[in-house]
Design a protein around this nucleic acid. Structure first.
Lengths: 201, 201
DNA sequence: GGTCACCGATGACATCTGTCATAAAGCCCC
DNA sequence: GGGGCTTTATGACAGATGTCATCGGTGACC
């Protein structure tokens, strides 16, 4: 029997997925968590075989949760389920040692199969998303360009970004100009949108 | 037996919700749709008692689907399920005659109950969201201000917004300035973010 | 040791954007 | 008919933003 931990902040979805998995004879949902912290403490206590983690959790990023889980409960395999199938997220997840990556648009019938694959030590990545991730490539932005673009994404004026990043406003403008240039955007706001669509920020 | 139509573009979620509803003796999921168009044609053919519609569908807005459904299949009650519980969305849905509004963060156990309530001609709105909707009030923006702000939300420069809205760039700047003022934003990008968070655009 | 990329900064310049005053047209309501 | 609001527009101005050249410092790589 494969013991599964379900982590999703959307209670309705979590319950529905539990109902779906309850139909399988060889799977049992031993715990459900709504936050990253809950996921970690439950996994430490119960040692599930597979943790199915939503990418968007209120406190921690799903990938960050997976990373800590690998450190604290090495026997527990992890897989990510997400609404927004962005290439950059897949890339980050795989780098963190996640073994399965499934957008919520995938067919309901394959979830159990993927859990079995992951539990057995295999890997599964949604084929369409994998293709996109390969064709999209990685972020062309440097670390600081990314930092500044994240701060710019809220729509704040340059001065506030500079204050929050502890940089001079001139430097911020240079970084944003560089980022917009690399992304082919007309201004920083369009750049932020494009980077978000790729999962780079 | 209450006959339910499920509309959600996320196949995994749709399937999981179907599994959840299959546990109820008095409910049966007679059809599943992934788009607004599919929802409408299936509802016309099958006349379900209740349509459970996700707010985000690839082609049409969930509320727009509900509106057309009321016209084409008046006996079919509608309810909306959504990831993002924004006050503005609830307001629009109720105005369109939707009888149930449930964020996906609601407990899985209540879904079946809400469907029964809606099927019986009752109404159900998530209590927390209802409180927010009341306290938030309606959008202070005029129709054109909203239009222009929607176009601005992509991060495009003023000239392109003007071109797409068939307005002079000066007029666009006036509208955006007015919108930013009403929303207390420092610039149009922050204004767009704030309006999005309220579900006004 | 030299080259290269990244980080951080400054200064100058042109352009974009936000703001305000003003105005004409249309509509609704009293 | 007048008052108020919306839509659309123009002109003017200050300040914000994007772009570019240039500089010094740091760490990696050959």
């Amino acid at each position: 029997m494969i013991r599964v931990l379900l982590a999703d902040d959307e209670h309705l979805i979590r319950g529905a997925m539990a109902a779906l998995l309850a139909l399988e004879d060889d799977l049992t949902v031993t715990a459900q968590a709504a936050t990253g912290a809950e996921t970690l403490s439950m996994a430490r206590a119960l040692h599930p075989d597979v943790a199915v983690i939503d990418l968007q959790l209120p406190d921690l990023d799903g990938v960050a949760v997976a990373q800590r889980l690998h450190r604290d409960v090495p026997a527990c395999r992890t897989m990510i389920v997400t609404s927004h199938g962005l290439p950059g997220h897949l890339r980050r997840a795989l780098a963190a040692g996640v073994r399965g990556f499934l957008p919520k648009t995938a067919a309901a019938e394959i979830l159990a199969g993927v859990i079995r694959t992951v539990a057995a030590g295999g890997r599964y990545v949604d084929p369409q998303l994998a293709a996109e991730a390969i064709s999209a490539g990685e972020s062309p932005l440097t670390v600081r360009e990314t930092d500044v673009l994240i701060l710019a994404a809220s729509g704040a004026p340059i001065d506030e970004i500079a204050r929050r990043a502890s940089l001079s406003s001139g430097t911020v403008r240079n970084y944003l100009s560089a980022a917009a240039g690399k992304l082919g955007a007309a201004n920083r706001h369009e750049a932020a949108r494009l980077a978000r669509e790729q999962g780079w920020i």
